[in-house]
Lab assay of single mutants.
Amino acid sequence: MASQGTKRSYEQMETDGERQNATEIRASVGKMIDGIGRFYIQMCTELKLSDYEGRLIQNSLTIERMVLSAFDERRNKYLEEHPSAGKDPKKTGGPIYKRVDRKWMRELVLYDKEEIRRIWRQANNGDDATAGLTHMMIWHSNLNDTTYQRTRALVRTGMDPRMCSLMQGSTLPRRSGAAGAAVKGVGTMVMELIRMIKRGINDRNFWRGENGRKTRSAYERMCNILKGKFQTAAQRAMMDQVRESRNPGNAEIEDLIFLARSALILRGSVAHKSCLPACVYGPAVASGYDFEKEGYSLVGIDPFKLLQNSQVYSLIRPNENPAHKSQLVWMACNSAAFEDLRVLSFIRGTKVSPRGKLSTRGVQIASNENMDAMESSTLELRSRYWAIRTRSGGNTNQQRASAGQISVQPAFSVQRNLPFDKPTIMAAFTGNTEGRTSDMRAEIIRMMEGAKPEEMSFQGRGVFELSDERAANPIVPSFDMSNEGSYFFGDNAEEYDN
């Protein structure tokens, strides 16, 4: 993207840094990872977990959730003011799984939030270390993106479920800051804005008074975040219109849905970061690795190297396929839920299948599930090659597409044709070009129609051997075009429920 120079890199967003050079960025990201790792080690000690239990991804998720809940100030305040039966607002906890007599047992633990905050700050040299908290939120978000298709949420806001490739980060909490905003897809931002506008339509006082002023500035800020994701002048001009509207209503909703559809071809720039579970960072720190000293990046080879040398386990339900569970977590670790499966298959070195073909449910185990038949197995999170994460949407291309997802959002900077089903997408653009945004709409449609099938995206960008740390010898991959490109292809993934 041309304006790259004016933006802070995501590592800076990730670490609240002012302008830093590459070495400083690597050190501050490393410091953040160190903090998460030290916190995780301490929690495993508190909970008396064995090494194996500490490497269980379900335990990692519970521990991450506990610290996120302990620092969720708004919710904590709300819980104190609106006490609900049987919930102690000062405590947080969740299921911890232990191996007892050759069987997995679930144990519900409860801790004072104050105590968890103390352990977290102690692991982070006394700081609140917001960057580390956001990092864990993005890992949870990436896992949700890989596990669930947001059909219901899309339909509720009037969008087409086939636009799911635009929904990265749709389950990120509001408090995820600049680093969170960077990884949100165009569809996620559109959905947040539509929800806001709908509230304004239904509630006369939404934009009024002292609160209304705050609401208005939040609305304009979200519009600017979305505008910054678009790469064409016409899309940005249309966002200006939406932002400046005196009284946002149905016309703005129409414009936003139009823009979301246009992003299936004229893709937005959305950041991709490899955020790993805390149970990967903990053992690495415990083994003596100093992330701050060595430096770390979320968008280069580092996460690949770390996963190459990590042992992570997962509980497996009786009829689940461990290899499929591994694929789910591998995609989440690489922030690749909406990437082209052919690119992923090449990088991973084994075939990556669409969601609907995987015999696996989510990673988390519900409290009512029976533990008797639970097994555990090693997650295979290694890769054959590594590639640089991208934040450009890439230019655009036609490809055989599917009944489910009709476009992709690249996660890796790797040369390819970008699949999208042009006739299906263009069919949504018939007729409606009147109104105050008509010239911009016409211009956007013209650009979409001009998108050429034979153009290559990320020209000359390749993948790298894991021994090639400096990215000196790019390998331009070859793809098996007979395979499906979309992950949520004609899909039956479970729906995400809060």
Rank of each mutant, 00 (worst) to 15 (best):
470 R>V: 11
464 F>L: 06
490 G>D: 11
215 T>A: 14
10 Y>S: 15
116 I>G: 01
333 C>N: 15
252 E>H: 11
196 M>E: 13
285 V>D: 07
339 E>P: 05
417 N>F: 00
318 P>V: 02
88 D>G: 06
16 D>V: 14
72 D>A: 13
182 A>G: 04
104 W>R: 05
313 Y>D: 04
233 A>W: 12
16 D>Q: 01
385 Y>D: 12
399 Q>A: 04
89 P>E: 06
337 A>N: 06
431 G>A: 04
31 K>M: 13
228 G>P: 13
468 D>H: 09
224 N>E: 05
247 N>F: 04
310 S>G: 08
176 S>G: 08
88 D>K: 02
253 I>Y: 10
206 F>V: 14
201 I>T: 05
170 S>R: 05
434 E>G: 09
110 L>Y: 10
426 M>V: 14
465 E>K: 12
117 R>S: 03
1 M>V: 05
417 N>Q: 02
179 A>E: 05
276 L>W: 12
368 N>C: 01
82 H>C: 00
436 R>C: 10
68 L>G: 01
212 G>C: 12
58 Q>T: 00
281 Y>W: 09
212 G>E: 08
72 D>H: 03
294 E>S: 00
9 S>H: 07
486 S>A: 12
117 R>T: 02
81 E>Q: 05
481 M>S: 14
382 R>D: 15
48 K>V: 02
12 Q>P: 01
253 I>P: 10
134 T>S: 02
197 I>V: 06
28 S>G: 01
159 M>C: 06
415 Q>G: 01
298 L>P: 12
132 G>E: 08
46 E>N: 03
223 C>F: 04
450 G>W: 01
32 M>R: 01
30 G>Q: 09
430 T>H: 15
388 I>W: 10
324 H>F: 10
277 P>R: 13
456 M>S: 09
64 E>T: 05
171 T>W: 10
270 V>W: 10
195 R>W: 08
19 R>P: 12
41 I>D: 04
244 E>S: 01
259 L>H: 10
11 E>S: 03
463 V>K: 13
304 F>D: 12
105 M>Q: 05
304 F>N: 08
329 V>T: 02
210 E>L: 08
440 M>Y: 15
169 G>H: 14
180 G>V: 05
136 M>P: 04
214 K>S: 00
458 F>N: 01
470 R>K: 15
188 T>V: 09
388 I>C: 10
211 N>F: 00
344 L>Q: 08
285 V>L: 03
188 T>M: 10
377 S>G: 15
410 P>I: 09
264 L>D: 09
232 T>S: 09
341 L>W: 12
114 E>S: 01
274 S>V: 10
1 M>E: 10
315 L>M: 01
419 P>G: 15
413 S>M: 10
270 V>T: 12
119 I>D: 10
320 E>P: 10
140 H>C: 11
97 Y>K: 05
424 T>C: 13
472 A>W: 12
221 R>C: 12
466 L>C: 00
338 F>N: 14
366 A>Q: 10
134 T>A: 14
386 W>V: 03
343 V>D: 13
212 G>I: 05
172 L>D: 07
176 S>I: 04
44 C>F: 04
373 A>F: 02
423 P>C: 06
459 Q>T: 04
427 A>I: 15
459 Q>G: 00
345 S>F: 10
77 K>D: 01
201 I>A: 00
386 W>S: 01
145 D>G: 04
342 R>E: 09
190 V>Q: 07
405 Q>D: 10
389 R>A: 07
4 Q>L: 00
254 E>T: 12
235 Q>G: 09
421 D>L: 15
107 E>W: 09
182 A>I: 13
237 A>V: 09
112 D>H: 04
108 L>Y: 10
79 L>W: 08
178 A>M: 15
371 M>E: 06
419 P>M: 06
322 P>T: 08
311 Q>K: 02
374 M>K: 07
359 S>D: 07
102 R>Y: 14
122 Q>N: 06
454 E>M: 08
259 L>P: 13
406 I>R: 15
154 L>G: 04
376 S>I: 05
457 S>M: 04
83 P>F: 04
428 A>Y: 06
186 V>C: 05
393 G>E: 14
359 S>L: 02
217 S>I: 13
470 R>I: 11
32 M>E: 07
278 A>T: 08
53 E>M: 12
208 R>T: 03
31 K>G: 02
35 G>P: 06
462 G>P: 02
289 Y>Q: 04
171 T>K: 09
28 S>Q: 02
157 T>I: 14
429 F>W: 09
278 A>P: 02
405 Q>R: 06
416 R>Y: 12
265 I>N: 08
88 D>I: 09
232 T>P: 12
347 I>P: 09
246 R>T: 05
138 I>V: 13
250 N>T: 02
361 R>P: 14
276 L>C: 12
493 A>M: 10
90 K>W: 00
394 G>P: 10
403 A>G: 02
184 K>L: 03
344 L>F: 12
95 P>Y: 04
76 N>S: 04
165 S>R: 10
216 R>M: 07
450 G>K: 14
245 S>L: 02
273 K>L: 09
212 G>V: 08
440 M>S: 15
19 R>V: 05
458 F>E: 10
162 R>Q: 08
448 M>T: 12
100 V>T: 00
114 E>W: 04
49 L>N: 04
324 H>P: 12
182 A>V: 14
274 S>G: 08
338 F>H: 09
131 A>W: 12
215 T>L: 03
491 D>P: 09
278 A>R: 14
245 S>A: 01
315 L>S: 02
92 T>Y: 11
